[in-house]
C-alpha cells in the first residue's frame, strides 16, 4: 500500500497524457496539435530534471536535442544500404542518440559543472552555437548543407511505414519519452538523488557540509536530462521531418521554449512541465493562427512577470494551496 501511494503523483500526469491521446485519436484533425503539445510536455519534463531540480540554467540545452537528431540521422544514412534491417535501424538510431547526448553531456558537464551559478550559465550559453559552428566549420556530417534522409528512410521501412512513422508512431514515441521522463522525475524525487538535488539547489555549500557529493548528483541530473533531450530530438525531429540542418537543430529558440514551459508550470515539480507544456503549446498554436509572429513578444513579458511575482509557477502555487488537503499527495 505504501509503495503504491508513492506513485499517486503520477496519476494526474498520466491522466493528462491519456486525455490528450484520446482527443488526438478520436477528434479528427486534432492529432497534429496533440503531437505538438506532447512534444512541448516532453521537452518541459526533460529540461525540468536539470533546471528544475538543480536550479542551474543550461542555456545550451537544445544542443542535446541537436546531437540526438544527428544520432538518428547519421544512423539512417549510414545503414540505409544494409538490406533487411528494418526497424532495427530505428532502434540503433535511438541508441546513437543516447550515446551522442551522453557524450556531449559528459564533455560539457566536465567543464561547466565545476562552475557555480552565473559561470555555469555563461559556459553553457555557447554550447549550441559552438557545436553548430564546429559542424559547419569543419564540415562534419555534410557541414552546413545538413543531412536529408527521406529517401533512405523510405528505403529502409518502405514508403507507407515511413509515412506512418512520421505522422503517428514518432509522436507515440514522444509520448513514451514524456511518460518515462515523468517516471524518472518521480523516482528521483523519492530517492536520495531527489533529496540531494533539493539540498544543493537551496544551498550548495551547506549541502556539501552535510556529506552530499554535489558534483555527482549534478552530473546525474545533467546526463539524465540530456539523454531525454537526445531521444526527443531523434524521435520528434529526425523521424518526423527526415532532414537535419545545423542552424535549425541548434537554434536557441528551443531552449527558450523549454525555459518558458518549466517556469510557467513550476520548476522542480512533477506535474508542472506537463501543465506548462500544455499552456505554452496551446497558446503558441492559437497565437500562430490569430497573431502570427507575436508568440515571443507575448511570452517574454510573461516569463518576467512569473520570475518577479510568482517564481514557484502554477503547480508550485497549487501545491502550496492544497498542502494540507487530500489532494496534496497527487500534486507534487
Amino acid at each position: 500500500m505504501k509503495t503504491i501511494s508513492k506513485y499517486y503523483p503520477l496519476l494526474p500526469v498520466l491522466a493528462v497524457y491519456f486525455i490528450m491521446f484520446l482527443v488526438g485519436k478520436n477528434v479528427s484533425g486534432m492529432w497534429q496539435l496533440v503531437a505538438m503539445l506532447l512534444f512541448y510536455c516532453a521537452l518541459g519534463q526533460a529540461f525540468n530534471i536539470f533546471l528544475g531540480m538543480t536550479g542551474y540554467v543550461d542555456f545550451g540545452y537544445v544542443a542535446f536535442m541537436g546531437v540526438g537528431t544527428y544520432g538518428m540521422a547519421v544512423t539512417i544514412t549510414q545503414l540505409a544500404h544494409v538490406e533487411g534491417l528494418g526497424f532495427l535501424v530505428i532502434t540503433i538510431g535511438f541508441l546513437m542518440a543516447l550515446l551522442f547526448s551522453t557524450l556531449l553531456s559528459l564533455a560539457v558537464g566536465a567543464v561547466a559543472l565545476r562552475l557555480k551559478g552565473a559561470y555555469f550559465a555563461i559556459a553553457t550559453i555557447g554550447v549550441n552555437e559552438g557545436l553548430r559552428f564546429f559542424i559547419e566549420g569543419a564540415r562534419i556530417w555534410n557541414g552546413s548543407e545538413g543531412l536529408i534522409f527521406m529517401a533512405e528512410l523510405n528505403q529502409i521501412l518502405g514508403r507507407k511505414t515511413a509515412s506512418a512513422l512520421a505522422t503517428f508512431w514518432a509522436d507515440i514515441m514522444v509520448l513514451f519519452i514524456a511518460m518515462s521522463a515523468a517516471y524518472v522525475t518521480l523516482l528521483f524525487m523519492r530517492s536520495k538523488i531527489g533529496y540531494a538535488l533539493t539540498a544543493l539547489r537551496e544551498d550548495e555549500e551547506a549541502a556539501k557540509v552535510m556529506g552530499i557529493n554535489v558534483t555527482k548528483y549534478k552530473i546525474i541530473a545533467f546526463i539524465t536530462s540530456a539523454c531525454f533531450a537526445g531521444l526527443l530530438g531523434a524521435a520528434s525531429w529526425a523521424l518526423k521531418t527526415p532532414y537535419v540542418f545545423p542552424p535549425e537543430v541548434f537554434e536557441i529558440h528551443y531552449t527558450i521554449e523549454a525555459i518558458i514551459i518549466v517556469l510557467l508550470g513550476g520548476a522542480g515539480t512533477l506535474l508542472g512541465p506537463v501543465i506548462g507544456g500544455l499552456i505554452y503549446g496551446l497558446s503558441k498554436y492559437y497565437l500562430s493562427i490569430y497573431m502570427p509572429g507575436f508568440q515571443l513578444l507575448i511570452f517574454a513579458p510573461i516569463i518576467i512577470v512569473i520570475i518577479v511575482i510568482f517564481p514557484e509557477g502554477i503547480i508550485g502555487m497549487l501545491k502550496n494551496r492544497f498542502k494540507d488537503t487530500s489532494l496534496a499527495r497527487f500534486i507534487i
Binding site: 536520495k192 533529496y195 540531494a196 533539493t198 539540498a199 549541502a207 552535510m210 556529506g211 552530499i212
Partner: peptide
C-alpha cells in the same frame, strides 16, 4: 533532518 541522516553517515 532526513538529509543529514541520509548523507551524513
Amino acid at each position: 533532518v532526513a538529509v543529514g541522516a541520509m548523507f551524513g553517515t
